[in-house]
Nucleic acid binder design. Structure first.
Lengths: 332, 332
DNA sequence: GTGAAAGCGCTAACAT
DNA sequence: ATGTTAGCGCTTTCAC
C-alpha cells in the first residue's frame, strides 16, 4: 500500500479511501491511485483491515456439519453460501463426524479466527461450553439440531411430527413389527424422530412391544448390517423406518440384496437421489436442507446487522413423498 | 493479551511464548499464564499473529469447486479437508457454478485474505489471469481439470482413456448410434471425455456419423430433456454416454420415464449412490474424488513445506464398473 | 480533499 | 528465563 501511495504520489490514507470508495476523493486523484494499483497488481490485506477496523468483521461465517461429503450437509452448505455470497461473506465449513471433541476444538478455532458468526449442527449433548462463546459476542445459529439447555436461535425441520406421520401410515397399513433404525440417541434429531415414532403407536393405541429400535448407526454399512441381522432373524420386521439418509441407503442395500424390497415396507427420513427410480420407489420424508441453510444464514445476518432479537426456533416444514416402498401392506 | 499478561504478572511476550509453547519458559510462569488465560477466557487473535509472523501463514486453503452441493465436489472437499485438518489448516470452499467471472473474483478474494494456497477446479478456458497470482507466490494446485497454457500442478483422472474404454465396450456390443451427453465443451474434462469417445470410434475403424454429440448440459434437468428429445425422435440412440454425474442422473430419468432402461445401453462417468440398486444396475466409470482431493492437498503441502518442485500432472486411475446398463446389446 | 500520527493484537529481534 | 521496542498493513482520528 505504501508503494501504491508512493507511485500515485499520495498518502497511504488516500489509497485506503479509494479502495473502500469513501467520499471526498478528487476523481483525478482516484484515477491515479487506480492506475498505481493496477500497475503494481496490488490487493488489500483483509487481515490488517479487519484488525484495525471498528467492529473487526472478517467477512467469514463458520459452518459446522456432520461431514462435507454428506449430501444433506452439502445442501445446507449451499443454502448458507448462497445467502452469504450475496453479502460478500465467505463460509468456512468444518466436518465434525459426530465427534464432540472436534466440535469444541472447531469452535475454538473459529474464535481464534474471529469469524463473524457460527452456524452449527451440534453433535454434543452438552453445549454449555458454548455459553461463554455467546458471551464473547459471537452470534450462533443452530441448524438441523436444536441444543438442549441453551436458549438460542435454531432452524430445524419438524422432526417429531414428520416421523409420527410416517409411522402412522405404516401402522394404518397393518404393520406392527416395525424396525426403527437411528443414529446415536444422543443426537437430537435422532431422539425426536424416535419420539415421533413412539407417538404414532401411542395415538393408535398400539403397544410398541413388537417394534424394534436400533440406535447408534453411523454409516450406511452399519445400517445395512444391522437391518440384515434383523431380516435374517426368526421374527423379521414387516416395515422399516430409516432415521436418516445414510441409514436409508444401508437399509435399501439390505432389502435389495435379499430380494425383499417388495415385501417389506420402507420409509426413509431425507430424500435420496434416484429414490424415485428404484423399484419400488422409496417413500421418504423430504427435508429441505438448502432452505434450512438459507434461513439460518438470514437469521445470522439479522443478528449481525444489529438486530437485538430474542432467540427463536424456526421450523422448516417437511414433505411426505409416497413412492411405493412405504405403501406396502403388512402380510396378514 | 495485555490483560492476561497483567493478571499473570508477566510481559506480553511471555504470554505469546506460552501460547505458542516456545521453549525457555519457567514451568511455574507458564502455569500462572495458563491460569490467567483460563480466568479471562482468552483466545489468541490469529489475524494479528499471521500479520506479524514471518511467512504470514493464515492456516487456510482455498478450494474452488463447481458447487458445494455436488456430490463429486463434496467428496473432493472431504479429501482436502482430511489432509488439511491433520495440519491444523482450514478449508474455505467456494462454489463457482461454472462461471468464469465468479472464478476470477473468488481468486481475488483469496488473495485479499492471504490464503496459504488455492486448490481449484477451473471453469475458465483462459487461466492466464492466474499467472500473476502465481508470481505473487500463492501456490496453486489444479484438481479434476487441467488448465491449458499454464505449467502447473494438476491432479486429475485419466478422463480420455476411461471414456475410450467405456465407448469401446459399447461399440463392441454393436452400438453405433451412441449419444454423448456432455457439459460445455470448453470444460476440459468434458472435452477430454469427448476425445476419448472419438478415439474409440477411430480405433475400431467405425465412422462417427451415427453418433450424436450434445454439449452444454449443465443440470440433470437439461440432460433429461436433451436425451428425451433424442429418444422421442425418428432415430433414437441405442446407447448413451453420460458425461458426468448430474448428466447421468438426468439420462436415467429420461430412460426410466419412457420404460426404455432395459433396451437402451447407458454408461455414466462418475459413480452414483444407489446406482447398483437400480434395474438394470448402472454401469459407470468410477472416479475417486476423495483421493483427488487428498492427493491435491498433499501436493499443496509439499509446496508449502518449501519443496521447489517442477509442475507435475498426477493421474488418479478410474475404475470401470459394469452393472448391467452398459452391457445391453444393440438391437440387430 | 488530503495527510500525519497513533494503534488494532500480535510476534521478531534484540536486549537483559 | 523474561522484558522492551519496533513493526506487520491497514484504518481511525484529527489536523490542515
Amino acid at each position: 500500500m505504501k508503494q501504491v501511495a508512493a507511485l500515485a504520489g499520495v498518502g497511504a490514507k488516500t489509497v485506503s479511501r479509494v479502495i473502500n470508495d469513501e467520499p471526498r476523493v478528487a476523481p483525478e486523484t482516484a484515477a491515479r491511485v487506480w492506475d498505481a494499483i493496477r500497475a503494481l497488481d496490488y490487493h488489500v490485506d483483509m487481515r490488517a483491515g479487519s484488525l484495525r477496523r471498528a467492529g473487526g468483521r472478517t467477512l467469514t461465517l463458520g459452518l459446522l456439519v456432520s461431514s462435507v461429503d454428506n449430501p444433506f450437509a452439502g445442501e445446507v452448505h449451499r443454502g448458507v453460501e448462497d445467502v452469504a455470497r450475496a453479502r460478500g461473506v465467505a463460509v468456512l465449513a468444518v466436518s465434525l463426524h459426530e465427534d464432540p471433541v472436534r466440535e469444541k476444538s472447531a469452535v475454538e478455532d473459529f474464535i481464534r479466527r474471529r469469524l463473524d458468526g457460527i452456524i452449527l449442527s451440534t453433535t454434543s449433548t452438552d453445549v454449555s461450553y458454548l455459553s461463554t462463546t455467546l458471551i464473547r459476542g459471537m452470534p450462533m445459529v443452530f441448524i438441523d439440531r436444536r441444543p438442549l439447555g441453551l436458549s438460542v436461535d435454531a432452524v430445524t425441520s419438524d422432526n417429531r411430527e414428520a416421523a409420527a406421520l410416517a409411522t402412522r401410515s405404516l401402522i394404518a397399513r397393518g404393520h406392527r413389527r416395525i424396525a426403527f433404525l437411528g443414529e446415536r440417541s444422543t443426537i437430537r434429531t435422532s431422539a425426536e424422530r424416535h419420539q415421533g415414532f413412539l407417538d404414532a403407536f401411542g395415538e393408535a393405541g398400539v403397544p410398541t412391544g413388537e417394534a424394534t429400535v436400533i440406535f447408534g448407526l453411523s454409516s450406511a454399512r452399519e445400517a445395512q448390517e444391522a437391518l440384515g441381522a434383523l431380516l435374517d432373524s426368526d421374527q423379521p420386521p414387516t416395515a422399516v423406518f430409516g432415521g436418516q439418509n445414510l441409514i436409508t441407503v444401508g437399509a435399501l442395500h439390505a432389502l435389495h440384496s435379499r430380494g425383499m424390497q417388495h415385501r417389506i415396507a420402507l420409509i426413509g427420513f431425507d430424500d435420496l437421489e434416484l429414490a424415485d427410480l428404484l423399484d419400488p420407489g422409496v417413500t421418504v420424508i423430504r427435508q429441505d436442507p438448502r432452505k434450512l441453510g438459507r434461513v439460518a444464514a438470514e437469521r445470522m445476518f439479522s443478528r449481525l446487522d444489529g438486530g437485538v432479537l430474542a432467540p427463536e426456533h424456526i421450523i422448516v416444514p417437511t414433505e411426505f413423498i409416497e413412492r411405493g416402498s412405504g405403501e406396502i401392506l403388512a402380510p396378514r
